[in-house]
Write a protein that binds this DNA or RNA. Structure first.
Lengths: 195, 195
DNA sequence: TAAAAGTCTTAAACTAGTTCATTTTTTTTC
DNA sequence: GAAAAAAAATGAACTAGTTTAAGACTTTTA
């Protein structure tokens, strides 16, 4: 089996068991996508046609506010799921951009195949139930942090939680994730490194 | 059928179909809970024993930060689900308080019955898959707002999105939800009403 | 490998929101 | 229905983070 297929099957089989046949069926519903550094996987205004699993690389998911300032909602690396679920589900235009920070490879599932998947292998209801449950828990945790921690504390948390990601992104993008300006991010990093 | 049971069955049947037998089975797994105004349904330090569906009343879910300031994560009224999912799932102690703002009535499902439910009526995997998916979409939307809108804009959004809730809660609790002090909330309300 | 483009740093002036303190108004309780 | 408790309003002094601007450093591209 291809490495990328092994990766996604392992990811799914953390929560549900699949027979060989089901694995094959699942893989047949996926589309391979490659995206070069700096290229967009998706842009605001489009409807999200796929949900993605990253097998290689690093991408950022961000939106632009009324003043044109970028807000990064997540960085996605190998073994992560990404996309704009709101747009994927509602079929309304997305507010997000997904841009490759490194040359990246992904497996996408289209909306048609996503719906088909539940009919063909109902066990996937359980997989997504658990996946969404865990996403919710980590979203709730993050939004608590953004309410109750200072920017400096959020930066320290980020480094602790995502040590693998910190070195693959720019300070500017990190500022967009933490929710502050690049200038203030620079001050914080200088200060924290001095400590 | 009791009114509260009708309400929860209607809620569930928005996403999945149930036979009469399944409805009865489901209801048999629920526990009725009443909580008086100002009483706690749950307190930080306890593990969340139940997830709740509100059939009557109004409650607030909040946490206290390191400085002891309350941050309200949601207001829950009739036809809403509430609880601390992170604690309910991981069985770790909760950081949340759930306090009744009005005399309230709820239907709770225990962790044992929640697990049992998926075995007995696997269709509930789909129900929770969709429920969590929708929660995620609204959480993502809210955390975008808390990043990119000013406190005044968040207040205006809240009034528009939850007109039924606004009149049932204090300004102080609303400040705890919006993420500002009660003093600044008061200033905003004065200003917005003048406009 | 040079120039262009983007990123990072630093600093001063500024603003959204906080803190603290006091008074008024509303709600709760006995 | 009076007293106590809680919530709301107001204002002045304060702070975390923004804005603007300019120079230094890095990365990308031709």
């Amino acid at each position: 089996m291809e490495y990328s297929h092994k990766l996604i099957i392992d990811n799914v089989c953390r929560f549900i068991d699949l027979t060989e046949l089901e694995k094959q069926k699942y893989i047949s519903l996926l589309t391979e996508v490659k995206v070069k550094k700096k290229a967009y996987l998706m842009q605001a205004g489009e409807t999200a046609k796929y949900e993605y699993f990253i097998t290689k690389g690093c991408l950022k998911v961000y939106t632009l506010d009324v003043d044109g300032a970028p807000h990064v909602s997540m960085f996605a690396i190998e073994d992560y799921w990404t996309g704009d679920m709101a747009s994927f589900i509602t079929k309304e235009p997305s507010h997000y951009f997904i841009k490759a920070i490194e040359d990246s490879e992904l497996l996408g599932i289209s909306r048609v195949n996503y719906d088909l998947l539940f009919q063909e292998i109902p066990k996937f209801e359980k997989f997504y139930r658990i996946l969404y449950q865990r996403s919710l828990i980590s979203y709730i945790r993050r939004s608590n942090h953004s309410i109750s921690l200072t920017a400096e504390e959020r930066y320290i948390e980020f480094k602790k939680k995502y040590p693998k990601i910190v070195n693959r992104i720019t300070q500017k993008d990190l500022a967009g994730y933490i929710g502050i300006t690049p200038e203030f991010m620079s001050k914080i990093i200088t200060k924290v490194n001095r400590m």
